[in-house]
């Protein structure tokens, strides 16, 4: 049908000529005259792309297995507790499960951060894609910020969402949901802040460690090794030694430190360690470590050659 009637305009502009049901489309180069969006758009695009990458979306199946498995594990305690409550008609009573869940899942949070953080940034440096990103209308801090925000958001799927669902489930199973929410508003606040703090702590630390190598397995190994070794060494010194100020070494436990903070939020005492330190130093130490790790991350990216 093409060419039956009508003339094609060969000026290079898209020209559509209808001939009956047929359509001729000239794919000449088109200049873009529409709006160009700013840095906030670019930042959200980078964050979403990093989050998708972390979840293995639009990637082979093998890249989806670990992140989705760990997310699934994080929902197991919530699902189990709510299921038992429903089946047994509230036999577990009003037990406050939030601190134990944080305690027991901390290792999985650590694993998630240690596996996903290198995936977000190591490949970009190894393949030198960052040189293209930095030649686009962004600053390096935007790139770093997008990776941090993406990983914190993903890790919040493990640290915040299951506990939030548990809170909502408890409220729905209570005699009066409104009363439950009112009576347990403190728990809601603590689990949100505690969950976000844990996500931020592990995310920034994992990204900072990953910025020192462009090999993903090494980055995962360095981060997990650092967290586990710091935990063992600091616990041994804090609990097993007896010199002046030995208990302060517990603040260098990169695995358990955010757990101690969450325990403090909920007024619980961590079962593994009973020291004279109150919660304040734990929180300050966690915030200082987040700040230092972020500074290291920024410094590493300022050093990256274009």
């Amino acid at each position: 049908m093409i060419g039956q009637q009508g003339n094609l305009d060969n000026t290079g502009n898209t020209e559509r000529i209808s001939v009956g049901q047929a359509r001729i489309v000239d794919r000449g180069y088109q200049h873009y005259t529409g709006t160009r969006l700013g840095v906030s758009h670019t930042f959200s695009v980078m964050t979403w792309a990093a989050a998708r990458r972390g979840l293995g979306l639009r990637r082979p199946f093998r890249d989806k297995i670990l992140p989705w498995s760990l997310i699934g594990i994080a929902f197991l305690p919530t699902a189990a507790f709510l299921l038992i409550q429903v089946i047994s008609r509230g036999a577990l009573g009003k037990a406050t499960l939030y601190p134990p869940i944080f305690n027991n899942l901390a290792l999985f949070y650590l694993l998630f951060a240690g596996l996903v953080a290198p995936d977000l940034i190591c490949a970009d440096r190894r393949m030198k894609v960052v040189s293209l990103y930095f030649a686009s209308p962004i600053r390096r801090i935007h790139y770093i910020g997008a990776q941090v925000l993406a990983l914190v958001s993903l890790l919040s799927l493990l640290t915040v969402l299951p506990l939030l669902l548990l809170f909502i489930g408890n409220a729905l199973l209570a005699d009066s949901a409104a009363n439950y929410v009112r009576d347990h508003a403190g728990d809601l606040w603590h689990l949100l802040v505690g969950g976000l703090l844990m996500a931020t702590f592990y995310s920034v630390l994992a990204l900072a460690v990953s910025s020192f190598t462009d090999r993903r397995p090494y980055a995962s190994g360095y981060f997990l090794g650092l967290a586990l070794i710091s935990s063992v060494v600091s616990t041994v010194i804090a609990r097993g030694m007896n010199f002046n100020g030995h208990e302060w070494f517990v603040l260098l436990d990169l695995w358990q430190l955010p757990v101690y903070v969450v325990d403090w939020f909920f007024g619980a005492t961590h079962p593994n360690i009973r020291l004279s330190l109150t919660g304040g130093p734990y929180l300050i130490a966690a915030l200082v470590i987040i700040a230092l790790a972020f500074a290291a991350l920024v410094w590493r990216y300022m050093e990256v050659k274009d």
């Binding site: 160009r36 969006l37 700013g38 758009h41 670019t42 695009v45 980078m46 792309a49 639009r58 990637r59 490949a123 970009d124 393949m127 030198k128 894609v129 040189s131 293209l132 990103y133 686009s136 209308p137 962004i138």
Partner: peptide, 20 residues
């Protein structure tokens, strides 16, 4: 400077979005 595990279409689209 190309990410080997991206589809060409996805990567070029992404670079377009990065440029606004």
């Amino acid at each position: 400077c190309l990410p080997t595990d991206w589809l060409a279409q996805d990567f070029v689209r992404y670079m377009g979005e990065l440029h606004g």
